[in-house]
């Protein structure tokens, strides 16, 4: 177990180093002068020179590279070219807001998806199953921006039950914060939940016919325990793997959801930064999101390993 953990941690560090290097080269691969590109055609030579200095573009290549990593390890992600503020001032709260959306959605999607998948699998080929399969196809097919816009129109404009587009910090007013959370979370959950329902259903259809489920029945176990302990539990292995992939999809979807619902998360920070060619901010966001994805995959692997002891040897 320790060995596996060390091995996987080593892999995660290697992945991070690769992502970091890609981010480093990203800015330097822009044709021409990145400082000029960032500032636009109208900037004066003086401004460009200043920016070059701020982006450490005048140093030797090696010192640029090691300087980049050195600052990174000190938690210095640079200064925004647009606002002049240190990236570390804004990033954590933005990241927190996005993670709140993503994690709450994923947790809900897992909870509801597994539950619905179990219902569908145990009633295979009956009306409940057909309805759930149809519903999940709908959930997967509807793009996030359609669902988000529809929800916004119905629940915030036609029947204003929930507050539209006004983000309130949980520290200021927890209740309003929860209310504002509802629509974006529902939007994100819908698609993921559909994916997890389908995965749970198909995995369980397989485990329900497995020999060990027949064994569990033959020893006189109550049916609900047969299903939960034997069929559902073993079906969780592919479901957890799917969930980790689904998390990356969710992070991608926040770009749209945050825009639709005016949610001040990391995606909208990224969108703004891309529009303004604010390279230090782009670098910081890409790096932090990549770190999260790598961490989640690591956790996913550990959970799968815990769920399926056979992975230990193979």
């Amino acid at each position: 177990m320790t060995r596996f953990l060390l091995q996987r941690l080593g892999q995660a560090v290697a992945q991070l180093l690769i992502v970091g290097s890609i981010v480093f080269f990203l800015v330097r691969l822009i044709p021409g002068d990145p400082a000029r590109a960032a500032l636009g055609e109208t900037a004066t030579e003086e401004q460009v020179a200043q920016t070059r200095e701020a982006m450490h573009l005048n140093d030797s290549f090696a010192s640029q590279f090691f300087g980049f990593w050195g600052r990174l390890f000190q938690g210095d992600l640079g200064t925004s070219l647009v606002s002049g503020r240190e990236v570390m001032q804004d990033l954590p709260s933005r990241l927190g807001n996005s993670l709140e959306l993503v994690l709450v959605s994923l947790a809900l999607a897992l909870l509801i998806g597994v539950l619905l998948g179990r219902i569908a699998a145990t009633r295979a080929d009956r009306p409940a199953d057909h309805a759930l399969v149809a519903g999940s196809i709908l959930g997967i097919s509807l793009p996030v921006f359609v669902v988000g816009a529809l929800l916004l129109m119905v629940f915030a404009i036609l029947y204003p039950i929930l507050p539209p587009q006004r983000f309130t910090s949980p520290l200021e007013d927890p209740l309003t914060h929860l209310q504002t959370l509802v629509l974006p979370v529902v939007t994100l959950t819908a698609a993921s939940c559909a994916v997890i329902t389908r995965m749970t259903r198909s995995a369980m259809l397989e485990t329900l016919t497995a020999d060990y489920v027949r064994t569990a029945r033959s020893k006189g176990l109550v049916e609900s325990k047969v299903v939960n302990r034997h069929a559902l539990r073993t079906a969780m292995v592919p479901v957890v793997s799917t969930a980790t992939v689904e998390l990356t999809t969710l992070i991608g979807s926040t770009v749209l959801v945050e825009t639709i619902f005016g949610w001040p998360g990391v995606s909208s920070l990224l969108m703004d930064a891309v529009g303004q060619r604010d390279y230090p901010v782009i670098q910081a966001v890409v790096l932090s999101v990549a770190t999260i994805v790598i961490l989640v995959n690591l956790i996913g692997d550990l959970v799968v390993r815990f769920l399926d002891p056979r992975t230990e040897e193979s």
Partner: peptide
């Protein structure tokens, strides 16, 4: 269901061909 369940494993038990798949791997 319940009467049958009480018999299964208690008064009539079964073993199967392939113990690798007949036992739950997890």
């Amino acid at each position: 269901g319940e009467e049958l369940r009480a018999l299964r494993g208690k008064r009539i038990a079964m073993i199967f061909q392939e113990p690798m798949t007949a036992l739950n791997p997890v």
